[in-house]
Design a protein around this nucleic acid. Structure first.
Lengths: 134, 134
DNA sequence: TGGGTTAGGCACCTCCAGGTGCCTACTTCC
DNA sequence: GGAAGTAGGCACCTGGAGGTGCCTAACCCA
């Protein structure tokens, strides 16, 4: 059978897509950046240098302990953040960016800069569009 | 009552967080970039200049029509993409980046560049971490 | 003696982004 | 006459990201 049904073609495309994703580093990075709190943690650590868990959870208002822990674990796992435990009486844990983490944070800040410069325009477009298609 | 319970404090933080998000342009931008297909569409349009719907769905293997449509609508709504309908016999629709869209696409490509340079290191860290914490 | 602090662990629940399938209306090709 | 291509619309469904609440263990303070 030389031809394919639409369903067969889509299945083939999906295989391509999956294979593509496995080797796609930018997708992997995007998945990390996509996490709701990652960029906020990067920004906070870049501003403050070193922060304790409690300081981070205060600075990033609204984050749950679970999500902050999860986010920091992932960043540590990826070598973007170092975790230092000091066995004082209630144990103290410090987090800071690695060089790698810092270089990524700088990029994230560029995106933030774009947003601050251009998002007003985007929101304007959005309102116009909504008004036109009401 | 001068003190707060932990629950009260968290509720207050959540209010702060919500208020914070409403005025946060970079968060709004991130929400857009977060959409699974947005970056791929930006990259494709930047490479090819102008593309038809079907060309995009072929280029971005694995995307469903629904998601491609939704992604393009959002990008159009935000003024990052222009949609041009040509009433040929089966109607033809072309998409291309606006200047605003192009400037954002360039930023996205920088992130992609970071990924291509450094993701190996990240993945290495990830493996080491997993090995150490097995 | 009960509450606050430290940095989380664990279990359950919710909600929606994204996926799938089926539909159109017109035309051209086999 | 049936299939494929054109650009989607619409309804339904599921997985997993993210949230909530309750737990610890050792200490301090009022």
């Amino acid at each position: 059978m030389p031809t394919m049904t639409a369903a067969q073609r889509r299945a083939a495309e999906k295989r391509d897509y999956d294979a593509f994703l496995d080797g796609c580093k930018s997708r992997a990075l995007l998945d990390r950046l996509t996490d709701k709190w990652v960029t906020l943690v990067l920004a906070a650590l870049r501003d403050e240098g070193t922060m304790r868990f409690s300081a981070l959870s205060r600075r990033i208002a609204g984050v749950s302990q679970k999500m902050l822990t999860q986010t920091l674990r992932n960043l540590e796992r990826d070598g973007l953040v170092v975790r230092t435990v000091t066995p004082t009486v209630p144990v103290t844990v410090d987090y800071r960016l690695t060089d790698l983490g810092t270089s990524l944070a700088l990029l994230v800040l560029q995106v933030k800069g774009w947003a601050e410069q251009h998002m007003d325009l985007v929101l304007q477009h959005r309102d116009d569009y909504d008004a036109a298609h009401a």
